[in-house]
Design a protein around this nucleic acid. Structure first.
Lengths: 254, 254
DNA sequence: CGCTATTTTGAAAGGGCTCAAGAGTAGTGG
DNA sequence: CCACTACTCTTGAGCCCTTTCAAAATAGCG
């Protein structure tokens, strides 16, 4: 929550003239010509309830999306990583706040320009839909996690997702970086910070993971990925096998 | 889970020829010329993992959207009411199953026809976006509910939402119908059926609501709407006042 | 009226929370 | 270099809410 905003910010209407958004072949290109805006740790890009006037793309760093409840509690609804776009799926107000976990930078264009570009482009629309699908799928998974998983399952699911992201990103070893604090993880998983800490300790005890000591507690090495996956509770047994087999005849024909 | 599918089902490619979807002024019109398909109680329209070949509109009744976990537990991710459309926001497979709570009927068109109609119509696209926004907002709210609300708050939130739906629908009195079973409510709120039952009993004890005896337990009269709202935990104190006021200077300028 | 499914109620156990203190990690300045 | 402070994280003990297990009551239906 420290102040000061350093980077210069160019009015996006000027930029809009210079760069014909209509020619963009993918959403990323909409942002490439925009100036990078830098965020300090804990600095917010916007708050819940702000007028949603811009769409942002994360250039560097990690952001947290959060809502503050009336009793002061915070719920983290998701994290944003480089390449992620935020601000698309809403009416007039942002549904959540977004703030940098560490130093971060992003680019923005106005919602108006974004929507016009998407409306005019047959290439962009499917990508928007595709990203929205991913986002919805992620929120649904989170919903399942919160409604029926234990603390250990939640944490393992969380770590597993990060492991998959790291491996997909080309990382050879099973070391994952968790830039967010324990409190962030707790608020994301619907637990307390104490439970997160205790559960990590328990997983270390089981030999599932170790903390990469030297640098910080924010780097974790997964020693037993298979066990992690098993403990995550996302059934090696296919979730839908039962329903499909037992009730196949009850389905509407097609 | 009883079998038998009664209504005749016309291949939607034939129908597509007869009705030019491109002329539809709203999404509802896409379905009006389609035959109604009837569902018995507990009969599924589709299951999680099925190829997502159709988009459905609910004509009558209530459906539940659910996922079955590997350990057999069920999570209900939402309910569908008349006028709701399902099957839009996904890639190739349905992310959840959908089954009728009581007798229900729906209309369908192929995803291909739906997507073509939407792609061709400047009138339809905003409506799709608008509905997706609502859905995302609802899931986000559910996420907050599951991650930080108590059993009583969850149930009150649930009842309040139904009350608002009933009042918005023109219902003069504060009686709401809950067509779903207690087990459905439990699976939706991330609780057990016993806790749901006990919490309702407690709310009756507080005078917040009464059960409309004659017909069934599925009709509930809200005696103290204000208290219900208060107990729902969605703060009469604005959730974002704190963040907005304290940290206004930390936000990115715009 | 009897059968079944759903709901309610009761008692006991458990998992995560709360409260509280201790340990490790920076960053600052003498 | 070492206090000093501030912050994050870990660990401990007791409690509470929800779950679990079990049984009774009520509703739905042939």
């Amino acid at each position: 929550m420290t102040p000061v905003f350093l980077s210069s910010y160019a009015n996006d209407h000027q930029v809009a003239k210079a760069t014909p958004f209509a020619r963009a072949q993918n959403l990323h290109e909409l942002f490439t010509s925009q100036p990078r805006e830098h965020l300090e740790a804990s600095q917010a890009a916007f708050f819940e309830g702000d007028d949603a006037k811009h769409v942002f793309e994360v250039a560097e760093g990690t952001l947290r999306l959060f809502r503050i409840l009336s009793d002061g509690r915070r719920v983290i609804t998701g994290f944003l990583y480089p390449g992620d776009i935020v601000g698309v799926l809403l009416r007039n107000k942002y549904l959540y706040g977004a703030e940098a976990i560490g130093p971060a930078s992003l680019r923005r264009i106005s919602r108006k320009a974004f929507e016009e570009a998407v409306a005019d482009s047959d290439a962009l629309r499917p990508e928007v839909l595709s990203r929205i699908c991913d986002e919805m799928a992620a929120v649904q998974d989170q919903l399942v996690l919160l409604s029926s998983k234990t603390a250990e399952e939640r944490l393992c699911t969380f770590l597993l997702k990060h492991l998959q992201r790291a491996l997909a990103g080309g990382s050879a070893d099973a070391i994952i970086e968790l830039p967010m604090t324990r409190q962030d993880i707790a608020d994301y998983l619907g637990l307390t910070i104490e439970t997160v800490s205790r559960t990590i300790t328990k997983l270390i005890g089981k030999g599932v993971l170790t903390v990469a000591n030297p640098v910080a507690r924010h780097f974790i090495r997964i020693e037993k990925p298979a066990m992690l996956a098993h403990l995550s509770g996302d059934g090696d047994a296919k979730p839908l096998a039962l329903g499909s087999l037992l009730c196949h005849r009850d389905r509407l024909p097609h």
